[in-house]
Design a binder for these strands. Sequence first.
DNA 1: AGTTCATATAGATATTTGTCAATACATTTT
DNA 2: AAAATGTATTGACAAATATCTATATGAACT
Lengths: 107, 107
Amino acid sequence: MEIDEKRAAQIFKALCDENRIRIIKLLNTGEKCACKLLEELNITQPTLSHHMKILCDSGIVTGRKEGKWMHYSVSSEGSETAVEYLNELTKLKNAACREADLPCCDK
Amino acid sequence: MEIDEKRAAQIFKALCDENRIRIIKLLNTGEKCACKLLEELNITQPTLSHHMKILCDSGIVTGRKEGKWMHYSVSSEGSETAVEYLNELTKLKNAACREADLPCCDK
DNA sequence: AGTTCATATAGATATTTGTCAATACATTTT
DNA sequence: AAAATGTATTGACAAATATCTATATGAACT
């Protein structure tokens, strides 16, 4: 897999705010509506809406509108992508893949 | 595992900048010294130093000083922690773990 | 149609962040 | 000891971000 830096940054940016981490933890046990999330977080409704947009745009969370209510849940597809990106980034490439496997700065 | 929001945010914050993603990609093929990284990135030396600090503080990268040179590599321990955090956050808890497994906003 | 309620958007603001130039620090070499 | 070299720190600044209040949008119910 080829890592697109911009896309990777977007995905991890969605995860780099404490409140968004809390939101994902709340969605961890299943779908929840915005009003439920709002009860549990010390933020205003527009702020929640802002965070949900970032989470949905990243693909990690999906939203479902039902009447007046928005229901959010963790997207298994989106989070698999995130995990793949993280694995691909951090796993050491094997020797066959390396061209630059030379001692560095051996001056 | 219990997710510490602050720690999780720190880990993912390290990954949410395009240049830091590029740095990790460069470390993907093995340890590299700062000067080598600097050659490949369109940033100044102080900016690189700043990014390396963030990456090291997050645990994802480790640094090794050898004379004048700093050698950086992806920490397998740190990146495993990151993957664990991401998995723990995004995997749906099974029914036994849920207390709140009720339809939400069923008004 | 008008009211109510849940969510989204707009605009303002304080904080955080990425960046650079200048300088300090530390280690090697002469 | 002095010069050279690689990296870290400081201070400044512009851009991005998280937050709020106020308002708009949209859907359900009288």
